[in-house]
Design a protein around this nucleic acid. Structure first.
Lengths: 96, 96
DNA sequence: GCTAATTATATCATATATGATATAATTAAT
DNA sequence: ATTAATTATATCATATATGATATAATTAGC
């Protein structure tokens, strides 16, 4: 009836990562996380660094990082600016 | 060579309206104005007043009015809340 | 026209986004 | 492994979004 009692750090990390993945998947359902994922994807596809993107739109690398972290609630204007820096158009609409 | 010198108030108003329409058309190209127009349309189609919508999402009528006026820069969260009040999903993405 | 309902505007308090700088942590290149 | 480049985190100052209340203006029903 005994399960393993000692737990390696690797096991812990694996567990943490699983939780993290679940959490991120959960979060990815929300529009703000979807748009952020899309922005990161496009930025990297274009071979842009955060700093380069920041320069293009007149802000700082740390602010791009903050946006991409998904830890806050950006304004429409800011998203529009970033979209422009990626040579994309921001589209916002209602579905359902 | 003379054009009409006296100008009626109606003429002025017509001119102002024309400018206003042009301005609104110009503004409507921007995503924030598109989404706002869509929200107003859906709200009225659903027969909801600003107050009713406000109550549903825990804010005040004046704040809905402010949003619908298009005179400021809403956050993604706020748009999401309003979308939810309209039983819709907010969709944000990059095009182009 | 009068009244009620709805929407718009003004204003204040507060929370929070944004810009900016510094620096830590991570990743890439050699 | 070291160094350089990139990204993440922390923090501060400032601007602005949001909630709230009051009231004006507009619109709808009668």
């Amino acid at each position: 009836m005994n399960k393993k009692i000692t737990t390696s750090w690797e096991d812990v990390k694996k567990e943490l990562l699983k939780d993290s993945a679940t959490y991120k998947e959960y979060k990815s359902l929300e529009p703000e996380y979807r748009i952020i994922s899309q922005m990161i994807k496009i930025r990297t596809e274009q071979g842009l660094t955060q700093k380069e993107l920041a320069d293009k739109i007149g802000t700082k690398q740390s602010n791009i990082s903050r946006l991409e972290s998904g830890e806050y609630n950006p304004s429409l204007e800011f998203l529009k600016k970033v979209a422009k820096g990626l040579n994309k158009e921001l589209v916002v609409s209602l579905n359902g």
